[in-house]
Write a protein that binds this DNA or RNA. Structure first.
Length: 418
RNA sequence: GCGACUAUGGUGUAACGGUUAACACUGGGGCUUGUGGAGCCCUCAAUCAGGGUUCGAUUCCCUGUAGUCGCC
């Protein structure tokens, strides 16, 4: 049966796993490498679809199953004609499975645990505490009640409480797929468990094998619905934490299943991100797309591309933008709230051609941010998304032009002010 | 003009006559990677002025100054 999506490698980055390609979806072709703008709740925060088209230029966006299931509910969106119609966006969309939120909004919520492990061993005692509490399977309902939240993983799925109103819900692989079919994105994602970077090897392995069983059930659940299969492709998610053997095992298993593409999820350390991705992408088939889940600082994108990743999503551009920090070409990340910009009449990023940078000064944005005006976060989000999308487009072009190395050196030396 | 009350960081408030004058906001610095218009960490910053009582005064007394309220 013809799949709803397909991928074609166009040009290989010599001597690496990197490539420029074309990802075909029912709502159009995505030229890769590409940055997927994050629109968790069926909106890229503060931007209209017209803003995205006019000011950002992204080719594809990502929404979230967990959030939309809780609010407004996938039935509402289905009745509205699906996500594209509901949010009036006609470009390719993907939905994340909700597996990550089990980790980020469940066990780890409010504990300051992120998917990125710190490079060095920090506060060991603290980490052990977090690990114990962040291991969903040891979470009893009593403990959960004491913490005011619930997140219990079992073989079939996850029982959790809403971070919005505390109501109890249950996700299984089949349920996640059912919800994602109702949402109707071009690309949906198999239900997975994202483990804490502080979890021990035994737990990571146990969770990984469970995720593999969920992956198989996810793809089977999706393939059963012929109508959905015509409209939606499905990605399997490689996990395995920071363990290369688990990563390789996971990639091998995912490659074996009938997926249209792959997500690479879970925790990494900044130091060995590249190696982890290489190990995974050496195993994943070259004729299918690979999406690096949740990672997308400028320097990370280079690392991901060189090691075979095609698409990236990351909340950073909008999250840091919302609180006033922008990417700049020559000064790295800049917090425009700082007093030093109060009278700075220069462009936010001197080298940028985005709407924000061609219309407003640092002083004005500094004022908006400090005054709590919503235009501030809006303008910074426009710039950051434009910045990262243009960067990714540039990476693609440099692969096509065989000038990747020069492009990378030039960009990073300016961005990191080396 | 008279009387009462008040006077503590930039702002608003704490502190039986007894360690280093506390808290919130603001200001400054930092963190943020399948979302978090949030949150957390660090930090600058004050006893209106001048006398007096006391071992010791933000605290009690006097004068001045300023403000608020009330009264001819």
């Amino acid at each position: 049966m013809a799949s709803a999506i397909s991928f074609k490698e166009v040009t290989r980055l010599p001597g690496t796993l990197g490539r420029a390609g074309e990802l075909s979806t029912p709502h159009g072709v995505v030229s890769t490498p590409a940055f997927v703008t994050v629109g968790t709740k069926a909106t890229v925060k503060s931007l209209t679809p017209d803003d995205l088209n006019s000011y950002v230029g992204n080719q594809i966006a990502l929404a979230n199953t967990y959030h939309l299931f809780l609010q407004p509910g996938h039935e509402v969106i289905k009745e509205a004609g699906g996500l594209h119609s509901f949010m009036n966006y006609d470009k390719p969309l993907m939905t994340d499975s909700g597996g990550f939120q089990v980790f980020s909004l469940g066990a780890a919520f409010g504990k300051g645990v992120t998917k990125f492990a710190k490079g060095e061993d920090g506060d060991v005692e603290k980490e052990e505490t977090i690990e114990r509490e962040a291991r969903p399977t040891v979470y009893s309902k009593e403990i959960a009640a004491a913490h005011g939240k619930l997140c219990v993983v079992d073989e079939e799925g996850v029982t959790f409480t809403s971070h919005i109103d505390g109501s109890m819900h249950r996700f299984t692989a089949e349920r996640s797929i059912e919800i994602q079919q109702a949402l109707g994105a071009d690309i949906i994602v198999a239900f997975d468990e994202c483990t804490s970077p502080t979890a021990d090897y035994a737990y990571q392995k146990e969770a990984l094998e469970r995720t593999h069983r969920w992956a198989k059930r996810s793809v089977m659940a999706h393939r059963r619905d012929y109508e959905a299969v015509k409209k939606q492709g499905i990605y399997g998610v490689v996990q395995g934490g920071r363990h290369l053997d688990l990563r390789k095992e996971s990639a091998t298993e995912m490659a074996r299943l009938d997926f249209d593409g792959f997500g690479i999820g879970g925790s990494f350390s900044k130091e060995d991100l590249g190696e982890s991705l290489r190990v995974v992408n050496e195993v994943l088939p070259a004729d299918k797309p690979r999406h690096l889940l949740g990672i997308g600082e400028p320097e990370d994108i280079f690392m991901g591309v060189e090691n075979g990743c095609d698409t990236f999503d990351c909340v950073a551009p909008t999250r840091i933008g919302r609180t006033g920090t922008i990417y700049t070409t020559g000064e790295g990340k800049l917090d425009l709230r700082k007093a030093t910009f109060t009278r700075d009449l220069g462009k936010p990023d001197s080298a940028c051609t985005c709407y924000t940078c061609t219309h407003f000064t640092r002083a004005y944005i500094n004022h908006l941010l400090k005054a709590g005006e919503m235009l501030g976060p809006h303008l910074c989000s426009i710039h950051n998304l434009h910045f990262i999308v243009v960067l990714t487009d540039g990476i693609r072009q440099s692969i096509l032009d065989q000038t990747y190395e020069q492009f990378k050196v030039q960009f990073l030396s300016r961005y990191l002010s080396l």
